[in-house]
Amino acid sequence: MAAANELGLLGVQVPPTSAVPVLVVQNAFRDEEGPIEVWEDIYAPGVWQVASS
């Protein structure tokens, strides 16, 4: 569940006692020697990533 400061950064307006899920996607690219790049994407409710056709 998202914390109050995270909801503010995402622009999500809800009552302070509401539980709000967010989608966190962890991405890691590596080669035979180890990690090359690692990051997280965080999506607010209703803004889930959609695969393009």
Rank of each mutant, 00 (worst) to 15 (best):
S18V: 13
R30Y: 12
A2Y: 04
V25M: 09
F29W: 09
M1E: 12
N5M: 08
W39K: 04
A44P: 11
Q49M: 11
L10S: 02
S53R: 10
I36D: 08
N5I: 10
Q26P: 06
A28K: 10
S53T: 13
D31I: 04
I36P: 02
L10P: 01
I36Y: 00
P15K: 06
P35E: 08
G8L: 15
N27H: 15
P35H: 01
T17L: 09
V50F: 00
D41T: 14
W48E: 14
G11K: 03
P21R: 02
A3I: 02
G46C: 08
E40I: 08
A44K: 13
E37R: 13
W39H: 13
F29E: 13
V12R: 00
V24G: 06
G11V: 03
V38W: 02
V22W: 01
Q49L: 11
W39A: 07
A3F: 05
L9D: 15
P16W: 01
V38Q: 08
M1P: 11
E6G: 02
G8P: 04
S18G: 04
D41M: 12
N27A: 08
Q13M: 05
A44T: 02
N5E: 15
V50N: 09
Y43G: 01
D41P: 07
G46A: 10
A28E: 14
A51C: 04
I42L: 10
N5K: 15
E37M: 12
N27F: 08
P45I: 08
V50M: 10
I42G: 06
D31Q: 07
E40N: 15
A19T: 09
P35A: 09
S53D: 12
Y43D: 03
V12Q: 01
T17N: 13
Q26S: 12
L9N: 10
I42A: 08
V24R: 15
V12D: 04
E32N: 12
V24L: 11
A4K: 15
G11A: 05
V22N: 01
G46F: 07
I36C: 00
A2H: 00
V50P: 00
V24K: 14
T17D: 14
L7I: 00
P15H: 06
I36Q: 12
V22F: 03
Q13C: 01
W48Y: 09
E33Q: 14
G46T: 10
E40F: 10
T17P: 02
R30A: 15
D41F: 07
V22S: 05
S53E: 10
P35V: 13
S53I: 12
A3S: 13
A28W: 00
L10K: 05
V47D: 09
P15L: 04
D41Q: 14
V14F: 04
M1W: 04
A28F: 02
A44S: 12
A2P: 00
G8I: 04
P16T: 03
E6V: 13
M1V: 12
G8H: 11
V12Y: 00
D41Y: 07
W48C: 04
V12P: 03
Y43Q: 07
G34Y: 05
A28Y: 03
L10F: 02
V14N: 03
R30W: 08
N5G: 04
N5W: 06
Q13F: 01
S52M: 13
